[in-house]
Design a protein around this nucleic acid. Sequence first.
DNA 1: CAAAAATAGGACTCTAATGTCTCAAAGTCA
DNA 2: TGACTTTGAGACATTAGAGTCCTATTTTTG
Lengths: 189, 189
Amino acid sequence: MSPESGTRSRTRRAILAAAAAVLARDRAATLADIADAADVARSTLHRYFTDRDELVRAAIVDSLSMVEEQQKAAAIDQGPADEAMRRLLVAMVDAGERLAFLFADPDLAKTLDQAKWDPDPAVPGTLDLIRRGQAEGVFDPGQKPEWVQRVIWALTYSGWEAGEKGELARHEIAGAVIRTFEAGTLTRP
Amino acid sequence: MSPESGTRSRTRRAILAAAAAVLARDRAATLADIADAADVARSTLHRYFTDRDELVRAAIVDSLSMVEEQQKAAAIDQGPADEAMRRLLVAMVDAGERLAFLFADPDLAKTLDQAKWDPDPAVPGTLDLIRRGQAEGVFDPGQKPEWVQRVIWALTYSGWEAGEKGELARHEIAGAVIRTFEAGTLTRP
DNA sequence: CAAAAATAGGACTCTAATGTCTCAAAGTCA
DNA sequence: TGACTTTGAGACATTAGAGTCCTATTTTTG
């Protein structure tokens, strides 16, 4: 790895964070907007990322590895699948802003190829957890794992947005997401 | 209303449909992209909508009234709330593309003000249905109606996207959405 | 068929955003 | 303190897309 000075790496992180935050709320935001949010001159931003594309790709990779970090911390390969899933959902809600940014990307897959991102094989994936839960008999086996994964993202995103718009308080979000994810909306006995 | 010739109104509709379709998949699409998709010259598009903003607003209003149309057809004020909800979900999935376009808009509310849109008071709203269902005891009363409404949009959008990416076949979408919406992902007895 | 309406296909201009560079100022660290 | 790194602020050049306008065709319609 290139040994980057502390200052530089701090600036880079600030820019990436600002990019995710701003773009999560408005994909059409200008580089000036992002630079402002990062408390940095536009010229500085350009010094770190020549292209807008490069910045976006870097922000995606950054957000993705942050989410991966969260997933790792959730240790979703440990314990009962339903409990692991709750931990995962809480972790995703925590990473809400980054997730919202990623969720907005029309074709993540394509961007990831360009950015040469490959997931850490040591971090167990969401699909694995879903399949495990189905095998253990706690998750509905009649739903395709890919669909369930999509639902996870959609609900997490919705939770973040509800928080943004003030419809849910911070502490209510994870609860609402988990409850809806697990039991849907029908009355529970 | 201005009596518009059949030709003109047909062209206008084609442009609006193309706009929704293209923008649902890529919000940053250019007017040239939209004109292409509508099989119309860019100059023609500009003849109908001077501004990009005007086009987008018109497309939003158009999509919205289409969705409203669907809701009306679903007659969600009739019969048991859970059945009405199923009809509503099917209707929304049917309007998938339009919904995806609307879902992508960061702040619908603001745009609607500008476009002077007001919902047809004769069409019962989603929130009413949710509240009715809670009162009837079929929907979980522990979830805020606004949240449930958000979930409806998110799931419908997810269904559309899953279809787009080939993860779900057309005929599977509504089923997956309804099932997840009603009962979540845990195993059902 | 003939008049009227609408469109295609350009050639333009204008603008906002992007990207490049420079230099003085501010900061970091031995 | 003095050498260095990094930044801020601004002046440019470039570009992509938006918006305007005109003319020759095509399509519609009476």
